[in-house]
């Protein structure tokens, strides 16, 4: 039972927690705020907080100058494609490991996990070479494949831990109730597995969206997603804080919102079920 604490203590913890929360969030807040300023206001000293002329101009300029929409679309395709494809391949694997485990299941799972731990840089040149041979350099398909494979272990693991939580008695009950295998999958298993699959989808979409090694190294212009788009801002020309902020805001906003929904799954997905 949670005990009641004194109001005074609650006020102190609330104040401390909010202070820390706001401090940690501040750079994001500041970036979003700056994106609505003019370039002059963006670098003014002392900094302006709310009493500036709000403008959407930066967003227009970013889109116009660097074709933001194209990068956004690449990000959506690459992150979405790799995640969906990964799940399609991982569901049967996780399924059979969860419901028809064999003596080898544990080792296969651990081996899959170990592939995630390979340092990407060790495979950089061979993979670039393969991309050249297969004509995949700077293609969305190539990146979809690479991100799908690099996230596959996490996808399999997440699905496996979710599937394992479906109690065997429920499947037996449905068998007693006369469900055929098809009906069992359609009426019982799928609805029960969907929340887990959705969480896996969400977290891996975020991971793929933010992936910044392969996306930077295997793309040039055509297939570059938002990570590369932002990286192109690393060499500034003139006044650009407001525009950088607008570009950054556009790159992180969708994922921030998705991310807040996936907090719980995050813990589970990234600790391979070891912390729940």
């Amino acid at each position: 039972m949670a005990r009641s604490v004194s109001t005074q203590r609650k006020i102190i913890t609330t104040a401390a927690a909010w202070l820390i929360g706001l401090l940690i969030f501040f750079p994001i807040f500041w970036t979003i705020l700056t994106s609505f300023k003019t370039e002059a206001q963006a670098i003014s000293n002392p900094p302006v907080f709310f009493n500036f002329d709000w403008t959407l101009e930066n967003y227009a300029v970013v889109q116009e100058r660097s074709d933001y929409m194209r990068f956004l679309w690449n990000s959506v395709i690459i992150a979405g494609g790799s995640t969906v494809l990964g799940i399609i391949i991982a569901v049967p694997a996780a399924w059979s490991m969860a419901f028809v485990p064999s003596a080898k299941t544990k080792n296969i799972l651990l081996w899959m996990l170990s592939t995630k731990m390979m340092p990407a840089v060790g495979a950089l040149y061979p993979l670039s070479l393969l991309f050249v041979w297969l004509n995949l350099l700077d293609t969305r398909f190539g990146l979809i494949m690479v991100l799908m494979l690099s996230n596959m272990p996490i996808i399999v693991w997440m699905l496996y831990t979710y599937f394992r939580e479906i109690p065997g008695e429920i499947l037996e009950a449905s068998r007693m109730d006369g469900a055929t295998l098809r009906e069992e999958i359609f009426y019982i298993l799928t609805p029960m597995a969907i929340p887990g699959i959705a969480s896996t989808l969400l977290l891996n979409f975020i991971l793929a969206w933010n992936e910044a090694f392969w996306t930077l190294n295997l793309t040039a212009a055509k297939a570059a997603p938002l990570t590369a788009f932002i990286a192109s801002y690393s060499s500034p020309e003139g006044l650009f804080f407001a525009k950088l902020s607008a570009a950054s805001t556009m790159a992180i906003a969708p994922i921030l919102i998705l991310g807040w929904f996936s907090q719980k799954q995050l813990v589970r997905g990234l600790t391979f079920g070891a912390v729940k």
Binding site: E169, A173, M176, D177, G178, P191, M192
Partner: peptide, 30 residues
């Protein structure tokens, strides 16, 4: 399913995504 027997499990094994009505109706639907 073909033995004509019904079973009540220790954990009840209710289908968590179905309402009480749907749970009870499930074997009939099958």
């Amino acid at each position: 399913a073909k033995r004509g027997l019904a079973m009540v499990f220790q954990s009840y094994a209710l289908y968590p995504h179905m309402s009480v009505r749907k749970n009870i109706a499930f074997p009939l639907k099958m």
